[in-house]
Design a protein around this nucleic acid. Structure first.
Length: 293
RNA sequence: GGCCCGAUAGCUCAGUCGGUAGAGCAGUGGAUUGAAAAUUCACGUGUCGGCGGUUCAAAUCCGUCUCGGGCCA
């Protein structure tokens, strides 16, 4: 059934990437692949990194974690605001250490940006600055766009100017570095193709009806399996964790603003939309071998 | 049985004075190198419940039937 996956994986040694949309069955396949490749599983999911979000993030169960070496699951406190570079800083040494023992890292997850940073490296850009971001968040978008146009017309011309996040980040780079974001980014982009040719991995695909059914099943299991208690226990969380799908919905349920069925529907819809975005992302990663399950 | 209200996109609904219909949500496709489970862009033909009638022209007016919901018996 997974002969194409095995073929892509080869005989082990190199890191193997196992990607796919949420609820596609990555975790189960990871266990299988780790066994096959004499490997160890490394998390590449932005939310499974956190402790206390196990149910919402559909992290592997404690039984699964105990059954085989897993790395980078539940390693961050919910108050920490992670980002792609922080993830790479955590993952690189873990992967190297696994390889030094002659094992194969099976890097498993669906966070496209985190995976991209890990596989292709980071552009030489300044790190996010919380204070500057807060300042920019308080300004009108038009104002940010005008300043970006002035500081870096090239970047402004190729940025989606309706997207506040993208405009802010481009501007942030210019302001923190004193250089043009476009110049800093160009150097990095030129090198990505060569890197891709040396990577090895698969992206799991499932038909939409199947994926949607799996999502619905999982949402129900989450809500029945302690997600409400988990959210209730998360008193102090970073703004990262607040964005976990299900967090707001379950808060609303607990507050009596919506009923259980509505909560379930909302979580399902948000999860389906997320899965679609993941598919769009991975479709562009041509180095991944598509595997239909 | 009588009366009233409703029936329009997958869902919830809008539709002015008659000129063959459009919002939100859902869905689909895209963008996306330090917030990414984030953020953002694009995409709207559907027996206007059925049948008849009036009219140059009906989602819209009239009749009737069907199915909901309600009130009175």
């Amino acid at each position: 059934m997974n002969s194409k996956v095995y073929e892509t994986a080869g005989t082990g040694g190199m890191a193997f990437y196992l990607c796919g949309p949420t609820a596609s069955g990555k975790s189960a396949l990871a266990l299988e692949m780790a066994d096959k490749l004499d490997g160890e599983i490394v998390n590449a999911d932005a939310f499974q990194l956190y402790r206390g979000l196990e149910i919402l993030s559909a992290a592997p169960s404690s039984a699964e974690l105990a059954s085989w070496p897993h790395h980078l699951y539940g390693v961050l406190k919910p108050t920490v605001a992670a980002d792609a570079q922080l993830y790479v800083n955590l993952a690189k040494p873990v992967i190297a250490e696994i390889q030094s023992r002659g094992k194969t890292p099976v890097i498993t997850g669906g966070s496209g940006l985190y995976l991209k940073f890990l596989t292709h490296g980071a552009a030489p850009l300044p790190t996010a600055d919380a204070v500057l971001r807060a300042e920019m968040d308080a300004r009108p978008l038009d104002d940010l766009v005008a300043q970006l146009r002035q500081l870096d017309p090239v970047e402004a011309s190729r940025t989606a100017l309706q997207n506040r996040r993208f405009v802010s980040r481009a501007l942030e780079i210019c302001l923190l570095s004193g250089e043009k974001a476009s110049d800093l980014r160009d150097g990095w982009e030129a090198k990505t193709a060569e890197i891709s040719s040396q990577l090895r991995g698969v992206v799991i695909q499932r038909s939409r009806p199947v994926l949607h059914a799996r999502i619905a099943q999982r949402t129900r299991a989450m809500l029945d399996g302690g997600a409400l208690e988990e959210v209730a226990a998360l008193a102090d969380v970073s703004t990262n964790c607040e964005k976990a799908i299900g967090f707001r919905e379950i808060r609303a349920l607990a507050a009596g603003e919506i009923d259980r069925a509505t909560c379930e529907d909302l979580i399902n819809a948000a999860t389906r939309q997320y899965a679609k975005r993941q598919e769009t992302w991975f479709r562009r990663e041509k180095w991944l071998t598509e595997v239909q399950l």
